[in-house]
């Protein structure tokens, strides 16, 4: 079953329901599916957590995932993972699950939509100054845009915008192109080659989730730690 025709480049184009500007398309539906799996799965596992040494397999799995993400954030943020874990962790888990579910026939990754990746990139774009201001105060944060001299202000702003754009396009490009490649290969060589490509797709999906979230963390860390480094 094909949800999206090969000519349709984004799941945004698969519209299920529309009323005026309110549109329910494949992107939203599959986003909700991913959200439901994540939230319901978490609730199922964490409603009965064992504080002892003996715990369930799923609890172990979630502990490994969460402590892995926390470890990565710790490395970048130099030991302040607690503040950033919900934001960065959710970015990673959402993108990773959205990409990994591409193995399920009939599913279209919401990250293959430019709208989704742009929304996520905007979230990062807004989160970076918020974390920076929370950490350093608004004055200190804004001063960063004028360092070393005020001439650098436009470059700083352009850097912020361009990296947001880069985040958006990198994720969208990778996932969308992979989906298109699979679709084209299925029509050309419909047997083993697409399977190999699917495996490669899982790897790419995980790598992209890692890249997106680690870059977000790097941006946030750079916004929160510059002041401290200057002080040193």
């Amino acid at each position: 079953m094909e949800v999206m025709a090969i000519s349709q480049i984004s799941p945004d184009q698969v519209v299920y329901w529309q009323w005026k500007f309110v549109t329910i398309n494949a992107t939203l539906v599959y986003t909700w599916l991913v959200m439901f799996i994540l939230v319901f799965g978490s609730w199922l596992v964490t409603r009965r957590l064992s504080p002892t040494i003996h715990s369930s397999r799923w609890q172990n799995f979630l502990e490994v995932v969460v402590s892995g993400i926390k470890g990565e954030i710790d490395e970048v943020s130099k030991g302040e993972a607690g503040h950033y874990l919900p934001f960065i962790g959710t970015l990673f888990l959402f993108i990773a699950l959205a990409n990994l579910l591409a193995i399920v026939p009939g599913y279209v990754a919401p990250t293959a939509s430019l709208t989704t990746t742009a929304a996520l990139a905007i979230c990062v774009f807004i989160a970076v100054p918020l974390y920076g201001i929370a950490k350093q105060g608004i004055g200190e944060y804004l001063k960063e845009y004028f360092r070393p001299t005020f001439i650098f202000f436009p470059f700083h702003v352009m850097g912020e915008l361009s990296r947001t754009l880069a985040l958006t396009v990198r994720l969208f490009g990778n996932i969308m192109s992979h989906e298109k490649v699979i679709a084209i290969l299925l029509s050309v060589t419909p047997l083993f080659f697409p399977v190999a490509m699917q495996i490669l797709g899982l790897l790419i999906g995980l790598i992209q989730a890692y890249i997106f979230s680690i870059l977000a963390m790097v941006y946030i860390a750079s916004a929160t730690q510059v002041h401290a480094e200057h002080e040193k």
């Binding site: 504080p51 715990s55 979630l62 969460v66 962790g89």
Partner: peptide, 10 residues
């Protein structure tokens, strides 16, 4: 449902 509970359990 996830981070706070899991971290607390750990």
């Amino acid at each position: 449902f996830l981070y706070s509970r899991i971290i607390k359990a750990m």
